[in-house]
């Protein structure tokens, strides 16, 4: 049931993109996201989409898998498209009942759709090719300078990695509990909103209990290994930039320049 949600889950395979330093990928994703919001220009979106396609090809993730990952956000996407289409004033193309569809509205909706799709796929690209541990590791290093203003960077990164680690576990657990309650005749689908919300109690109570139990066990296990925060902590595999990362940064600079040029002159 819940297993089908692939949004942001690491996809295990070997590729050049998987091997890149997580910092490179974080910065790359950030640059990609910025590039999507700089111009409202069809050519920029086409260029950004081809860049993403290139990344997908390099990453060896099946394109169908990427598309399946969009499933959970399709509702949001369609909703935004409709709102944009219906409520943008301008030159009317056709009228349906009391609703005016305008030329600007359609244009706006298309741009918005392209932007959102690329945005989600782009950030998915990062999480699909980077394990959560490496991702938070990269984040911790990137945020390193913030330690100077007394920000508990290590603790934030640790919390994030624990949260990420627990998502699939709790998802499996929810699946199991739902099935077990279904076997006892629970019904999660029929009835109105209030009845549906009530029917979730038999799932949420055991889920919370199990989450607390797991958190307790984890805290105990960490203490047993003498974990006491980030100070003086070393890593088994410290992050290190390699030639491939340099190349990636170069590609990113080229990409950004191209986006700016296309946006300005086309």
């Amino acid at each position: 049931m819940l297993r089908d949600i692939t949004l942001g889950q690491y996809y295990e395979t070997k590729s050049k993109l998987h091997e890149l330093d997580p910092r490179t990928k974080l910065v790359g994703t950030l640059i990609y996201l910025i590039s999507l919001f700089m111009f409202t220009n069809a050519y920029v979106y086409i260029f950004a989409a081809s860049f993403l396609l290139l990344c997908v090809l390099i990453s060896r993730i099946p394109p169908t898998y990427m598309i399946k990952g969009m499933k959970p956000v399709i509702f949001l996407l369609v909703f935004t498209l409709f709102l944009n289409m219906l409520f943008t004033p301008g030159e009317v193309i056709f009228t349906f009942w009391k609703i005016n569809i305008t030329k600007e509205g359609v244009k706006q909706a298309l741009y918005m759709g392209a932007r959102l799709t690329l945005l989600i796929m782009g950030s998915n690209m990062m999480t699909l090719t980077t394990t959560p541990t490496r991702l938070t590791n990269g984040l911790e290093r990137l945020m390193g300078p913030l330690k100077l203003i007394k920000l508990p960077v290590h603790e934030i990164a640790m919390m994030m990695s624990i949260a990420l680690r627990f998502i699939p576990i709790l998802m499996d657990e929810t699946d199991r509990i739902m099935k077990a309650q279904l076997a006892r005749g629970a019904d999660f689908e029929s009835g109105n909103l209030i009845k549906k919300a009530k029917s979730l109690v038999p799932v949420l109570v055991p889920l919370f209990i199990s989450a607390f139990r797991r958190a307790n066990d984890l805290a105990m296990a960490m203490e047993a290994r003498c974990y006491h925060g980030g100070k003086g902590r070393t890593q088994m595999k410290p992050l290190k930039y390699r030639p491939a990362d340099l190349l990636a940064y170069l590609v990113l600079i080229l990409y950004m320049t191209a986006v700016v040029l296309i946006g300005k002159y086309l």
Partner: peptide, 27 residues
């Protein structure tokens, strides 16, 4: 009737009696 592994992880009611009543009421 299906009893899962570690079925104690699905208990949620406040008393044993209510817990056992959950199934019959659902059906």
């Amino acid at each position: 009737g299906l009893v899962f592994q570690y079925p104690e992880h699905q208990l949620f009611e406040d008393t044993v009696f209510n817990e056992v009543c959950f199934g019959p009421k659902n059906f």
